[in-house]
């Protein structure tokens, strides 16, 4: 009986490294496959995030001034047009120029991402 026990022990210690080796390799391969898949899926998102951050910083820097100027121009132009049509020369121009000024500030606030009111513009990521 003692002889048999010794033989069993010998078999187990001989076999264990052989079993543990492949198991570890399988989980390693699984991890690598998962990593590759994650990489393949996040590739687009990664570029997208960089795109959006680039757009936010540089884009808004270039937008701020022209957004304001454009709104004032449109306000003044509309006011002048209304005055020309109705013959109320200074009033329409003054009122709409002020409204254009307000719209310009609103535009700038939106371009800076402070007022996300009309629509969800560019605020998909908090």
């Amino acid at each position: 009986m003692a002889d048999k026990g010794k033989q069993d022990n010998g078999e187990k210690t001989g076999a264990e490294p052989g079993i543990a080796g492949p198991d570890k390799r399988f989980s390693e391969i699984s991890a690598r496959i998962a990593a590759e898949r994650r990489q393949a899926e996040t590739f687009q998102g990664e570029t997208g995030r960089r795109t959006s951050s680039l757009g936010k910083t540089w884009g808004s820097a270039f937008r701020l001034g022209s957004e304001f100027v454009a709104a004032v121009l449109v306000g003044g132009g509309l006011g002048y047009l209304i005055d020309r049509l109705l013959g109320t020369l200074p009033f329409g121009l003054i009122i709409l120029l002020l409204a254009g000024f307000a719209a310009g500030i609103l535009n700038m606030a939106r371009a800076a991402g402070r007022v996300p009111k009309a629509g969800d513009r560019m605020n998909d990521e908090p």
Binding site: A71, A99, A103
Partner: peptide
């Protein structure tokens, strides 16, 4: 008044879009 501002803001979009590119 808010609507007027929003309308002007909307109309200013093509203007700012055009002026920014052209101006730069």
């Amino acid at each position: 008044f808010i609507s007027l501002i929003e309308v002007i803001s909307f109309l200013s979009r093509p203007v700012s879009l055009a002026l920014r590119l052209f101006g730069n």
